[in-house]
């Protein structure tokens, strides 16, 4: 932290805004790409942004209590927390974000944090569909966190640090020094749990719009929903940045960042648009099967070979 506090705040704000907008645009691009696979044109790429404006412009909103109110706040706090401790662009003073020795743990906590807050808030809305969605979401989350955590443990052992910036720095020696090539088992385990983290098919049971209208956010509307949607852009990009940093060598300039997050996101879309949906117990069984085994192997291989 060479800058003063004020400058840091401004830089963080810029970084957050750019990340959110890029995240929302990525979402819009994803809608368009999936639409092509369906044989249609799809909405304009800025449709998520219009939706957010519209939702925030709603004239009325109903609160179901304090926790309900705090749900989206927790959610966006989780998104911001996750993002702000990941170096968005390695070496950049504006997009470098905050960094300290144990930030990898903090980030992993923040990934959980938003979801838990959301679960509490949605629970207070009293809507049965919210409760069902929350139950499904949390049980699925515990399942996909396991291979991801194993993969991260493998990385920590490999690089001997809990600082993301250091991990990125260690990968800066060209293509072959990426974790993707130095620790392929950990990468595979993590990529599979990314699919679950992003809640793309086949792990989209949480929001299953046909069966349980929209899942946890059933009762969320107006500004609440606007906040959740903003977070969707931000949290998405945070996760992508994290994966980019951990496994794909990070980004040293904005073009590389855009390219890498885009490709990474398209990978989940590519799988997501192809597969049908797992039921909750199916997806749990899946995550606790092959991906977990790969994760354990990754840890063993790095630790003992």
């Amino acid at each position: 932290m060479e800058h003063g506090l004020f400058i840091s705040i401004i830089y963080a704000f810029i970084s957050l805004s750019v990340a959110t907008i890029w995240g929302l645009l990525l979402g819009g691009i994803a809608l368009k790409v999936v639409a092509r696979a369906h044989g249609r044109f799809g909405p304009p790429v800025w449709q998520p942004i219009i939706d957010i404006i519209k939702n925030n412009a709603r004239r009325t909103s109903i609160s179901h209590g304090i926790m309900y109110f705090l749900g989206p706040v927790f959610r966006i706090a989780g998104g911001m927390g996750t993002f702000l401790f990941i170096p968005f662009i390695f070496g950049s003073s504006v997009f470098g974000n905050f960094s300290f020795a144990g930030d990898l743990f903090l980030v992993m906590y923040f990934i959980f944090f938003g979801q838990l807050g959301m679960a509490l808030g949605a629970g207070e809305s009293g809507h049965p569909y919210s409760a069902i969605g929350v139950a499904r979401g949390l049980s699925q989350m515990t399942a996909f966190e396991l291979p991801f955590a194993l993969s991260v443990i493998s990385l920590v052992i490999q690089y001997g640090t809990l600082n993301i910036t250091s991990i990125v720095a260690a990968q800066q020696g060209g293509l072959l020094s990426w974790t993707l090539f130095t620790n392929p088992l950990a990468t595979i385990a993590a990529l599979i749990s990314l699919q679950g983290m992003n809640m793309h098919n086949p792990f989209s049971i949480v929001i299953a719009p046909q069966e349980i209208p929209i899942g946890p956010p059933t009762e969320y509307h107006s500004n609440f929903l606007g906040l959740l949607q903003t977070n969707r852009g931000l949290f998405n990009i945070a996760k992508l940045a994290l994966f980019m940093n951990l496994y794909f060598g990070g980004a040293t300039n904005i073009a590389v960042m855009i390219l890498k997050t885009f490709l990474l996101y398209m990978l989940t879309i590519f799988i997501g648009a192809s597969f049908p949906r797992f039921r909750t117990e199916q997806s749990i069984r899946f995550f606790l099967g092959v991906p977990t085994v790969i994760g354990i192997l990754a840890v063993i291989v790095i630790a003992y070979l």
Binding site: A35, R40, K54, I214
Partner: peptide, 21 residues
């Protein structure tokens, strides 16, 4: 459906009255 693709005009079905306009 793909024939009409209402999403391109910003129309989308919403399963809950809270979020629908």
């Amino acid at each position: 459906t793909a024939r009409f693709d209402m999403f391109r005009w910003g129309l989308a079905p919403r399963p809950t009255p809270r979020q629908a306009g």
